[in-house]
């Protein structure tokens, strides 16, 4: 009697813990534990056949299938180029519009972010190790150049031409002016082009791209505007 009651309590508690997990991997492993205790329960209430099936299917086979299915969605590998206002590692951790959006997205999808800094775009092969690449990427610059990536626009911006002939987006211009690398007089005000900041999604992580597009479309405008105002002013 005592055994049955304790097994019953263990089953319910484990089931509750599994349901309340927000990290999929933990939930899968705990559901394996749940299956194991269910198998013990079946054994003690006189159904050894069912116990064997539950132990092999529930605790081992299903766990494996779930873990493999989760492989691509458990961790979000983000490669970024430092760009103050959009994404940058500050004294108190990462900050910026892109980082906050990605953080909200990863929390929404119960994934963890794995951030890695990229220095340049010279070697495209290295970029394939990431799901998402960000750091002030502009739509018009990358169309055609990086065909292996999917572009997900999220914020409108302007492109300005400097007197040296460089085309730079608003946030870059702002950062350069603030750091004193160029003066406001160097910017040609007339060549204003409209474009959008984008997230680059690797073709291998197409599912992440679809999920991110959905997320950005359904994101509350108020929250989005708040993030932009807080980081870009």
């Amino acid at each position: 009697m005592f055994l049955e009651i304790s097994l019953g309590i263990i089953l319910v508690v484990l089931a509750l813990i599994v349901v309340l997990q927000n990290k999929p991997l933990k939930a899968i492993i705990l559901s394996g534990a749940f299956s194991a205790s269910a198998a013990i329960t079946y054994f003690f209430i006189g159904a050894p056949d069912v116990a064997m099936a539950e132990a092999s299917i529930g605790a081992v086979f299903t766990t494996f299938v779930y873990i493999v299915a989760l492989k691509h969605s458990g961790k979000l590998r983000v490669g970024y180029i430092d760009q103050a206002g959009l994404i940058k590692r500050g004294a108190h951790g990462y900050e910026g519009v892109e980082y906050e959006l990605l953080k909200l997205f990863s929390e929404d999808r119960a994934m963890s972010l794995e951030m890695k800094k990229i220095d340049s775009f010279d070697s495209i092969e290295k970029l394939e190790n990431f799901d998402i690449i960000c750091g002030g990427m502009v739509e018009s610059t990358f169309s055609g150049k990086l065909r292996d990536f999917m572009l997900i626009p999220y914020l409108e911006t302007n492109i300005f031409k400097t007197k040296k002939g460089e085309k730079l987006d608003l946030v870059r211009i702002k950062n350069l002016v603030l750091s004193g690398q160029i003066s406001p007089q160097d910017i040609d005000q007339n060549t204003k082009e409209f474009t959008k900041y984008v997230f680059l999604i690797s073709k291998e992580s197409e599912d992440v791209g679809k999920a991110l597009t959905d997320f950005l479309q359904n994101l509350d405008k108020k929250i989005f505007n708040d993030i932009v105002r807080r980081n870009l002013g």
Partner: peptide
Amino acid sequence: STIIVCLVTIVSLTDIP
């Protein structure tokens, strides 16, 4: 709902016909 499920599980485990 947890309490209900808990009770149902325990009762069904202890009162096997």
